[in-house]
């Protein structure tokens, strides 16, 4: 197997160490993310998933253990610059991450920071806006856009820095269903056509069913990981972690317990329809 792009080795992280409000957010994370993967991280609030995300590009560094990005240790100050170019990051609140007053200026913000020559920035902005389907809005101001569109601009702002991986920290939590669809469609497309590695943090279980791998977090630890099918076969475990499963998965589980012969890990309507029609 290829070398991991991001590697967590025994990572612990404590907020406010040594104070009354000390809180161990990560408690021994071992995780490898490989180039080209689409990894979804699922967990409820306080499970440590956002803390995990912020470790991927050195916004936070481990209290103990280490995180390696393309072989570089995030604790190494000299490497931070390189790491942030390798791993892009999109955040939850679409309003609070756009800096400039127009879409194109915002997408240019990253490359400007990198010191890219003006001519090339223009090419990168074009390319990035095309990649998220926002070319038509280049002169719009951010407040004229819908939540989903703002998130696509934020993603374009990352693509223009040409990262190898984009980590999205609950990018859909504040969006309506339409916005969520837009964002999910965009990141899947980037993963497939541009081969950008995606780490998608969410608490919406329906957003993880098309991922290559699902990582379930609880209390700062990885509770379970595997393909969506594998993970959703553990309906009882997920319930005990206060996580939802898709309605059809729950239904299949109930029908199985009533003696119906259905396979494990049904996650879409079509799958269940097919199985029921055969039985």
């Amino acid at each position: 197997m290829a070398k991991p792009l991001i590697r967590f080795e025994g990572v612990h992280f404590r907020y406010n160490p040594g104070t009354e409000r000390e809180w161990a957010a990560l408690q021994g994370i071992d995780l490898d993310i490989y180039p080209g993967e689409f990894v979804a991280v699922l967990g409820h609030n306080g499970s440590g998933k956002s803390t995990l995300a912020k470790h991927c590009n050195a916004l936070l560094v481990p209290s103990s253990g280490r995180v390696l990005v393309d072989g570089l240790d995030t604790k190494d100050d000299a490497a931070v610059w390189q790491i942030r170019q390798t791993i892009g990051m999109v955040f939850q609140n679409p309003d609070n991450q756009l800096v400039a007053t127009t879409v194109e200026e915002d997408v240019a913000f990253g490359p400007e920071n990198l010191g890219i020559p003006s001519k090339e920035i223009q090419a990168r902005v074009d390319e990035a806006l095309r990649a998220v389907g926002m070319e038509a809005y280049r002169l719009h101001s951010p407040h004229q856009l819908s939540g989903g569109q703002k998130q696509r601009v934020a993603i374009a702002g990352m693509i223009s820095m040409r990262p190898r991986c984009i980590v999205l920290d609950e990018p859909t939590a504040m969006l309506d269903p339409e916005g969520r669809r837009e964002v999910m469609h965009t990141i899947h497309r980037l993963n497939e056509t541009e081969k950008i590695t995606i780490v998608h943090i969410t608490h919406h279980m329906d957003e993880v069913i098309n991922a290559d791998r699902v990582v379930i977090m609880t209390d700062g630890k990885i509770a379970l990981q595997g393909t969506p099918k594998d993970v959703f076969s553990n309906v009882e475990l997920l319930r005990s972690l206060h996580l939802d499963v898709p309605q059809v998965t729950a239904l299949s589980h109930r029908l199985r317990s009533r003696g119906l012969n259905l396979p494990d890990g049904i996650i879409t309507v079509d799958e269940l329809v097919e199985c029921l029609c055969q039985s």
């Binding site: 942030r84 194109e104 913000f109 490359p111 400007e112 010191g115 223009q122 990352m158």
Partner: peptide, 15 residues
């Protein structure tokens, strides 16, 4: 802004 590589005006280019 930090995640997008911002570290002040030094070494910045213009779109």
């Amino acid at each position: 802004m930090e995640a997008r590589g911002y570290r002040g005006g030094e070494g910045r280019t213009k779109f």
